[in-house]
Design a protein around this nucleic acid. Structure first.
Length: 346
DNA sequence: GCCGTGACGGTTGAG
DNA sequence: TCCTCAACCGTCACG
């Protein structure tokens, strides 16, 4: 799968603005972060769009998402819905059936609800129950596959629900969509609940202030240097507000080995197959030689410094309490990472 | 000209 | 191991 021989040449498309993107794949977090930062500074989305060469629809989407969730991160891509027919559910269905062989599927469903085995959001459908009865509990004299070794550890639905915070009220989160963390991951960074858990030591103004300072301190107004800018903007933290970095790492799918960009600009989720100095042609968003890492390796050792993301989320936090609008928007622009911003110059 | 939104073609990953 | 399917992505075009 690795087209290592021609990574740069093989991938990437150019949008109408001249920016490079990978169809189907999220923008690098550096860009996403930048979009949010600029928006926080009062830059208009259309200017951000032009500045970063990202379609305005995308800018709009990212900002809207950020406003809803506080996260700059893309959602979990791929995967399947969590199963509702957990071992625990199957076990209970089996017990019901054993207790009353003539029980109807809909009755089982009611009992699952009544007994609290399931809630209304994860109760299996009648047809699912029927299928379970037919396929898994057909022979009541034999233990089902779930009754075996698996049963003990799982304690069925409980564990399941733990893994999937799928008590849907949560997923009816402000995201409006399933911001569900990928199954198996504790929680995706930046997803609402996590970000909201942060008292936010990194306020918008703090972070942006630092960013601005970084710009003032001579960071060139080139996007190539955003990584550095972000580095300056988001001091490293091994833990953020008590949240252990390891937990954060598990959340953040985008990790990358250290590089100039690396520490504070989480890599995009491009798998190695998608590696191509993305964004380098148009915006040089990523330093050449940067290694994209495969998305979603919760267990893998990640070297990234998650502080950037969390800081981002944290300042969103703060900003929510008050106002997203920066206190001194445009006047700061000259300092904003040294960028000459479109509103004033273009 | 700006912005929100839906269609589209694409990628991803759990089952 | 391969396939399916439903999630997500960013771009583009339209109003």
């Amino acid at each position: 799968m690795c087209f290592c021989a021609f990574p740069e040449q093989t991938y990437g498309e150019v949008n109408q603005l001249g920016g490079v993107f990978v169809n189907g794949r999220p923008l690098p977090n550096a860009i996403r972060l930048r979009i949010v930062e600029l928006a926080q500074l009062g830059i208009r989305p259309c200017d951000i769009s032009r500045q970063l060469r990202v379609s305005h629809g995308c800018v709009s989407k990212i900002l809207a998402r950020y406003n809803e969730t506080g996260s700059i991160l893309p959602g979990a891509i791929g995967g399947s819905k969590p199963r509702v027919t957990t071992p625990n559910v199957v076990k209970n269905i089996r017990e019901y059936k054993q207790g009353d062989p003539g029980i109807f599927a809909w009755e089982i469903r009611d009992r699952l609800l009544a007994d609290g085995v399931c809630d209304k959001y994860n109760v299996p459908s009648v047809s699912s129950i029927s299928r379970i009865l037919r396929n898994k509990i057909g022979n009541l004299s034999q233990p089902t596959q779930y009754e075996g070794g698996k049963q003990g550890s799982s304690q069925g639905g409980l564990a399941y629900n733990h893994i999937y915070p799928y008590t849907y009220p949560n997923t009816m989160s402000p995201t409006g969509t399933k911001m569900g963390s990928p199954p198996g991951l504790p929680m995706t960074a930046g997803h609402v609940s996590l970000s909201r858990a942060w008292p936010s030591a990194h306020t918008v103004s703090n972070i942006l202030g630092i960013s601005a300072m970084a710009g003032a301190e001579g960071y060139p107004p080139k996007m190539e240097d955003w990584g550095s800018v972000n580095r300056a903007s988001f001091p490293a933290a091994h833990s953020v507000n008590g949240i252990d970095k390891s937990a954060i790492d598990a959340d953040i799918k985008y990790a990358q080995p250290s590089s100039t960009l690396s520490s504070y600009v989480p890599a995009c989720a491009y798998s190695t197959s998608n590696q191509y100095g993305v964004y380098s042609p148009a915006g040089s968003y990523v330093t050449p030689g940067h290694h994209w890492q495969t998305q979603s390796h919760p267990g893998s050792a990640m070297s990234m410094h998650a502080g950037d993301i969390h800081s981002t989320m944290a300042f969103k936090h703060q900003s929510r309490d008050g106002d997203r609008k920066p206190s001194s928007p445009i006047s700061k622009q000259q300092h904003v990472h040294g960028l000459s911003l479109a509103t004033s110059s273009s």
